[in-house]
Design a protein around this nucleic acid. Structure first.
Lengths: 243, 243
DNA sequence: CGATATTTTGACATACCTCAATGGCGGTGG
DNA sequence: CCACCGCCATTGAGGTATGTCAAAATATCG
């Protein structure tokens, strides 16, 4: 009872805005469970076969590659209403690890049920495909950010992307958003060391662009931050569009 | 006549190995044209609506982001039997530019015909979805390579990935493969400057791992190169698997 | 053969990393 | 309430990887 109530209560924000109301109705009927996961918990590891996919309802999750000697690199960050690992449906296993950063609420969708639904409902299948492709577009932008931008621009770019996506998912605010990451986490995202994160954040602060403090990012100058990060939101395909 | 003959003649190698023979038969029937494109030619640019997708039959094509002040960053490199922009089918437009590096042969698939086929043939639709997801897995690995690895390791990683994919597509060889890129191109891929590419290539050569010369990469020590690049091919999902 | 692109090398500048120390801040147990 | 501890943020100093500029050497192509 509680399960379907919970999912019904969530309106289709963020990435789920890709779906029609009826499509969302059909999809959420398949939810088998809702789980609360503590912060800093590994959800799934690379290589293991998966029989379900997870929709993030609240909190922040990350996907990352490389736990060995080379410092781990985050390859994706998921926010509310993102499917974390929908690509495991056609692929059956993951090529990366998934973990929560904050405490998180997850909706579980068994693959056999999903499989049946996408076979019946072609239009929904296409929308789900599309959602995974927007994920891929974000991947491309991350490659650009870590490979083509310097630390300052890269950090700004990341903050801009997340601002855009969080506003769209109802977690953003006028002057910024809650972002309970450590500076080490930010380093794994931008591809720089913890110490250099600190210096970069100071630069952004002293430039009057934004302040990252106490798990909150305060944006002072959106256009300036956007410019510094060479950020252009069109790669989000309105999938995380601000209405 | 010539068109279908050409496509029939190509066996299902590389990424196309994802398809059954019958699926490939149904798909290739939709090919409306085969085009030969000269090297260094822009095929499509970000933002423009697309009514077709392209299958690369021969040559090398790249996708890249950022043409402005920040140096452009390549986000994908496509080899024979790769769909270059299949994601344009659900997304309708691209978030990046596409260009040839070498002269290339392309098979054109109109979106309206593709759309009809994936609506009828659910299994094929799933396979195509899967192909775009392997693309996404490669994107993640590129983010890892560019953000998590140093120049030497990154270059080695790239060479390993391409080795794997080219062998799978029938373009690879025992001792290496043809790779007609300039050192500037390599820089755009690995995220380093042209000059540093040169230094890095020398390091790889002097370490006895590989030699890049005259548009050919000669691999002297595959295991060593793999180790240097922290390369693990499992993210390719056998999609580009060596048989 | 000249003209142009590409590779190679050197010298220097700088972005970033690593190591190390310090300080803040929230818990936890006495 | 205080002492202590562990995690995180901050700062400094010095090292290294990489970028930039410029020139020479070499390949490529008409």
């Amino acid at each position: 009872m509680k399960i379907s109530t919970d999912l019904a209560a969530t309106d289709r924000r963020g990435m789920l805005a890709q779906l029609d109301p009826e499509q969302w109705d059909r999809l959420r009927a398949l939810c088998s469970d809702i789980r609360n996961i503590p912060p800093r918990t590994t959800i799934s590891v690379a290589g293991e076969p998966l029989d379900h996919s997870l929709l993030l309802l609240d909190g922040i999750a990350v996907r990352y590659v490389g736990s060995g000697p080379s410092h781990r690199q985050m390859v994706a960050l998921q926010v509310a209403y993102d499917f974390i690992d929908l690509h495991a449906l056609p692929l059956q296993r993951l090529d990366h690890d998934v973990a929560t950063l904050t405490s998180a609420t997850l909706a579980v969708f068994p693959h056999d049920a999903l499989q049946r639904l996408v076979t019946e409902d072609k239009e929904l299948a296409l929308r789900l495909w599309r959602m995974t492709l927007i994920d891929a577009a974000i991947h491309r932008q991350w490659t650009y950010r870590v490979g083509g931008l310097r630390a300052l621009a890269g950090m700004a770019h990341f903050f801009c992307e997340l601002d855009y996506r969080l506003v769209s998912s109802g977690r953003g605010g006028e002057d910024g958003y809650r972002l309970p990451l450590t500076q080490l986490d930010l380093g794994d995202i931008v591809g720089i060391s913890e110490v250099h994160v600190n210096r970069t954040l100071r630069q952004l602060r002293e430039a009057g662009l934004c302040t990252f403090q106490n798990g909150f990012l305060q944006i002072h100058d959106r256009p300036g931050l956007s410019r510094t990060g060479h950020f252009d939101a069109s790669y989000l395909y309105g999938g995380d569009a601000v209405p």
